[in-house]
Design a protein around this nucleic acid. Structure first.
Lengths: 167, 167
DNA sequence: CGGCATCCTTAGGGATACTG
DNA sequence: CAGTATCCCTAAGGATGCCG
């Protein structure tokens, strides 16, 4: 199963490692600990200790990941205070972070299918309808798209240094 | 945006790091180089040099990743011979590997949206219909599912060591 | 509670050179 | 063409201990 290429797509012109969107996403989150922390954020964790305890990631690494994710705008750090308590910090998912959900669900579903002989340890269901939730390729016209129905086409041209022109 | 939990989901009982499907997937592929090589496999690369050249990954690392991906059953190494040429090796995507496509597309789409100020460098289109392709959460009944419509429920019970019973 | 500093080990990955 | 061997550097991550 390979993706058909249309148009002129010479290697390393617009889909090379430095412009590739997938590579850029991986530059932002690519460590195991980052994904685990994001998972816990989706599961509702907000406090440092929740992240560390529930992921099993050590505190120094948890601190480093949280800092990076805040830098990248995926989590937002905000102080809060419960009545009668001192001020604490909490990490909340931003919109940018929330949009990583399909990535996590896709990873989860693949693991369910190929790395869980005994079945999925947890499942995501559609509230109300109750159906199990997965991730699907879909085009903007609403069609479900199989892998071999994909065509790869050039998008935005690579940014060029402005050419000084005479006159 | 957090996922509502239903049923009893005490921490570290069924969704802890060791049983988590996402963590298991990441144990199989979590390096930048592995994702780039998979991308090229989807784009049609089959030969060692194609992977190395088109990803920009060094040969030693390319060799190590290909070996790992073959071990994991994501790529299959097979000899082939073009007429009049010597035997060569080629790496072909397996079904297990092909099912990673939604993961890669999800990563790509997020990068398009959040890390590409000038727009997507390449786009995936639905052949025939021509619509742009993205990835969507969807339940088994065909409903499109928003992030806040998700419920997390316990799945298969954790495997237990068999209890020796008397009599 | 929410971290940071330090130390250590292992893994990822590039450069270069070499082999079948 | 398809790798392997070697060397070296950096990043990931755990353990421990300390701080406001």
């Amino acid at each position: 199963m390979t993706i058909e290429m249309t148009g002129m797509l010479e290697p390393r012109s617009g889909w090379s490692a430095d412009r590739c969107s997938m590579a850029r996403t991986l530059a932002v989150v690519h460590t195991r600990s980052a994904f685990l922390i994001l998972r816990e954020a989706f599961y509702g964790a907000t406090r440092f200790e929740e992240f560390a305890a529930r992921t099993g990631v050590s505190e120094p690494v948890t601190a480093a990941r949280l800092r990076k994710l805040v830098q990248e705008g995926i989590l937002a750090r905000e102080p809060y205070r419960e009545p009668g308590q001192r001020t604490r910090d909490r990490y909340r998912m931003t919109d940018k972070g929330a949009e990583l959900l399909p990535v996590l669900v896709a990873l989860m579903r693949w693991g369910d299918r190929w790395e869980q002989s005994a079945g999925a340890p947890v499942e995501l269901h559609h509230r109300g309808c109750g159906g199990r939730v997965g991730v699907e390729l879909r085009c903007e016209h609403g069609h479900s798209v199989a892998g071999d129905e994909l065509a790869l086409v050039p998008g935005a041209p690579p940014p060029r240094p402005p050419v000084p022109h005479l006159g």
